[in-house]
Design a protein around this nucleic acid. Structure first.
Lengths: 241, 241, 241, 241
DNA sequence: GATGAATGAGAGTTCATTCAT
DNA sequence: GATGAATGAACTCTCATTCAT
């Protein structure tokens, strides 16, 4: 077999794998994990049932493959890019949020369904196994938020007494719940600005600027500064005369 | 049949219905909706398989029955009571949150599992039917939060520019996501204080109180300070010449 | 439900169970365990596939059910009857042998096939589990041979130094192997007399009569007896004269 | 291609074939024919799935190949050697028995499993085809026992009225059944001495030796004794009168 | 000659639901 | 009203075998 042939062969394999993943993703997202049979997936992917199991040993591993691909090809790369490109904390959080929400909403349009259901699948099948590959994937993704927060605190953008875990829940819980309710009512229309509506009060609760110094304190300081300036001006005037 | 007999008969019926609901709730919560067969439910309830369908028509209606009972007997009454008893907004939100979380976590210990899975069931089977009885139940329950927020704004406890919908997502999204992650790690241990950890930054973002000066007032003061600075500057200029 | 109805209902259940067992027995015996699908069994029994599993939780339990019935309704009762009716050891062994062989050969004509294959199934599925119900069934059946041997030794019909275990192997091993080869060549024709041909050398090896007293010894004794008679006769004759 | 290269190529082929046979033998013996997939065999042999079929055409032919090799490389050669080396009938039977049993038990430790299962396979797939290659193999192997018996009778070691076929059943039936039960309880431990325990009663039933008087001779002696008794009786009668 | 991806029929089993009793 | 035997479609998954490379 020539190198060329081998390469072409590999490409075909990957194409097929992708095809199955695509079909399964769409079906799971549309009808749910349990309501989608492997037969339907095979048919939708244009392969035989055996082939599905040839590539992914079981329906569960297929699901895992979907999530793996989603995390590795969609969620993680862009999240990393965001942190590398955007530096101000507010902008980072906003970008991460929009990315998260639109990734879930995009593509199969209802990928979020998949995740919800998967939580069930996960518990049902993987049990309390803390080594679950899904956990690892999730951990690495969540790390991006953690980093944004950590650096935000270091720069003084965020309150210093914020704990990591509740923050994750605030961020992802709000976004996913919000995505669900928003899409239920308006589909993907106006999703970005809804994310802003969700983030605004959250930001208020997290940010440092008008906080450890409250607006009141800030005002006081401004007034003090003015007074000092005035006194200085007075002294100068007096000295002149 | 005497009235007495009729009454006793009715009681028996209700008792049986309750028994089935109890068994199904526990099983759904423990193993998930799809992993629980009607046969197991019947066995756990101590009735025949046919009887389950006698009372609930189908497995889906049984699930609906569980949620109906949960909303009507657990979630709603206590939420109403909270709003009737507690008056300060911070206390109300905290009580609603603890109630929500502990209701989901209590009793069957994993009732939340049920809800997650149910979302799947709901979409799978009831489709996008906006008339779904589940929606009604949910709407009425969510109303309690809406009321607490509305009254909180009226009393000046909360910022006046808060929108209802994002608030719901912030509140329930954070709580349910947090409940999930917390229970995954620690079970029901320390759940209440974790709710506090979740609510604190949220409250910071929502409350009015510590903004002793609103942005509007702040602007006024800044204007004044600027004017004074300008006057000072004028004086210097005059003095120079 | 009247008692009558309940009885009739029970009868129908048993009839159905019997029907499934009959169908499965025939198919297993004809085509082998692995080559017989539960679907075929259901069809042959005139019931739905679900019903087969309703009565026997799995294909393996169905097989166990067949063997259970075979031991309890065919093998054991007649074996017990033989020991109660026939008293001489030779006759007992012969009757047990004929019974064993003809039971295996009869009915489904190839029930023996089933046993062979089942040994495989047993090891495959029940593993080395010494608690296997099959072992119990077999133990109780083998007990009949053991008893015949024990009593045969007590009565002096059999050599006293025979061990139980090798005897079982000699008896059942020979019979089953012989049954197999005989049926392979002649079907059930002349089976009984073939059993005799198998038993004859076996009996020669087991029996006491012409053994602890060999034919030679026996002859000697006869001669001694004759001599004594002759001597006596001599004495009488002398005395007379 | 040089002759050398051709030879090396042939060697490689044979090595590969042997590797597949080895792997299949072990797996069949361990897990059974049906529970062993061709995929597992290929993996265990370190070849691709296609290669297995390249060499053996089908799973059944592979099984046949195993048996063929077993008969031709293990069973038959040593059996022939035994008959060529050992001359006394008792010793021959013992050696054949030990050889048979230990060959089945050895190597893959449970090769006997294979045979049991194979009987099933054979009937299932090769049907009643009397031309089955397995039959030929078996016939040639059984011939060794036949010869030992024939010559044993000729030498006067064995009773002259023994039939070939029942003898085969006695011999192989007892040994295989005994092997099965013994290995079930003790593995390969003490197998040889168990063979002795099986053979002893068998030998008693077959041998001529200790019948220092054959039935025919016995009859003669009995006739003589009777005649003497009759003569005695006659004398008495004469004397009386 | 060797590979291993692809196949698709068929396996055992489950399950919500029905209905005669 | 309550039962539970009966259903049969549908499920996930396995497997010997083929064939393009």
């Amino acid at each position: 077999m020539t190198d060329n042939a081998r390469r072409r062969s590999r490409e075909r394999l990957e194409e097929r794998e992708r095809g199955i993943l695509d079909a399964a993703t769409k079906l799971f997202a549309t009808a749910g994990f349990h309501a989608t049979s492997t037969r339907k997936i095979a048919a939708a992917a244009g392969v035989s049932e055996g082939t599905v199991f040839h590539y992914f040993g079981s329906k569960n591993e297929l699901m895992l493959g979907i999530l793996d691909r989603f995390y590795n090809e969609v969620l993680n790369p862009r999240a990393a890019e965001i942190l590398d490109t955007i530096m101000d904390t507010r902008g980072r959080l906003r970008a991460l949020a929009v990315h998260h929400v639109s990734s879930l909403a995009a593509d199969s349009a209802l990928m979020m369904r998949l995740l919800q259901v998967y939580v069930g699948v996960d518990l049902e099948i993987l049990g309390q196994d803390k080594q679950s590959p899904l956990r690892d994937l999730n951990r690495s993704y969540v790390g991006h938020l953690d980093r944004a927060v950590r650096e935000g605190i270091e720069r003084g953008d965020l309150r210093s007494n914020l704990e990591t875990r509740p923050l994750r829940d605030l961020f992802f819980g709000t976004l996913e719940y919000g995505l669900r309710t928003h899409m239920y009512r308006h589909g993907t229309e106006g999703l970005d600005s809804y994310v802003d509506a969700l983030l605004e009060p959250l930001w208020e609760g997290l940010s440092q600027s008008h906080r450890s110094k409250t607006p009141a304190q800030l005002t006081e300081r401004l007034e003090e500064a003015c007074e000092r300036l005035e006194r200085t001006a007075d002294r100068w005037e007096t000295a002149k005369h």
